[in-house]
Design a protein around this nucleic acid. Structure first.
Lengths: 170, 170
DNA sequence: GAATACTTGACCATTCTACTCGGGAACTCT
DNA sequence: AGAGTTCCCGAGTAGAATGGTCAAGTATTC
């Protein structure tokens, strides 16, 4: 999973859309949100937003309405839209520097799987699981803080001293 | 926390160093590993490795020995070196596109904290906690797989159906 | 003192980001 | 009908970051 500012902008815009929709639950919601409004509120260039929303629309996350009074609407209620989906829609999955994505293709020149392969694979999983556990509604309602937990049910060598360091870091 | 290929290369090199050291536990270990060897094994350019190890040395993760037979040595046993430390040493913490890093400085033009601020903060924490729970020894001994767990002890709206989707994804 | 190996700094090609621009197509009003 | 509003799409682009190379050192050992 790629993590760039493009993805961040997309989530910002989607959060804005979710927060400023009159009521996304009703299918015949009469008021889509115009990109120009989002651009003004979030201070993102309109043309750039258009690019992002083109991808979001292709990804089935939003629907569009053209003409005066038109704009964008969430395809589903915000509680059902996961952050991971938004980021995957706009950030095409990068080939993670050797280690061909996904499969167990060789990453060293000898064709073997490199030592760190599992680590990046696992980190990607970790990020994906986290971002899949957060919905757009969670972000809008600011119910995100405090979710990061060590959660090592299998043997971790995190001593008490080290855990303290982590808490103090940054 | 930044996640670039630079960090990946650094972890690869450190794993190589840990795996090819005669015995890093003994203080007076007579055989440091030369960068040229690591470069050959990992297929990374020597000059690039030099840059990485300069930062790793400044970060106190490795010690260097000059002259013939010289090279680099882990500063501590590999079980005590966390992956997070390696990445932090080589990848200077980026300013996360508005949202000034760390503090609660305003990220919108009005100076308020943006809606998505908490999300990125929390994601950063999640990544940091994960990478801090993995030691260099874990990577070398390939004891990494299966650590990514949903771990949502507080209310998550992940339905059974969605959890299935996640498992199937990618 | 010669060989080895780390140290430093300048430099460079390529890629990515975050846009802009220009035109077009659908739609709704008057 | 036509004018204005909005989405749609493709090409282009300045600037920064990535991932390196190259050259000239300095320290250490044999």
């Amino acid at each position: 999973m790629r993590l760039s500012t493009k993805g961040r902008y997309a989530v910002m815009a989607m959060a804005d859309l979710a927060g400023n929709a009159t009521d996304a639950q009703i299918p015949g919601d009469p008021k889509p949100v115009a990109l120009a409004d989002i651009a003004a509120r979030q201070d993102i260039s309109l043309s750039y937003l258009e690019q992002l929303f083109a991808k979001l629309r292709r990804g089935g996350l939003v629907t569009s309405v053209r003409g005066p009074g038109g704009g964008y609407r969430l395809s589903r209620p915000s509680g059902e839209l996961r952050i991971a989906d938004i980021i995957l829609a706009v950030d095409e999955p990068i080939a993670a520097t050797r280690c061909k994505t996904g499969s167990t293709k060789g990453c060293t020149k000898t064709g073997a799987r490199c030592v760190t392969h599992d680590l990046w694979e696992e980190l990607g999983q970790q990020i994906h699981v986290f971002l899949s556990s957060v919905s757009l509604a969670d972000v809008v309602e600011r119910r995100v803080l405090g979710r990061a937990k060590p959660c090592n049910d299998l043997g971790n060598e995190l001593s008490a001293e080290m855990a303290g360091e982590i808490a103090a870091a940054e």
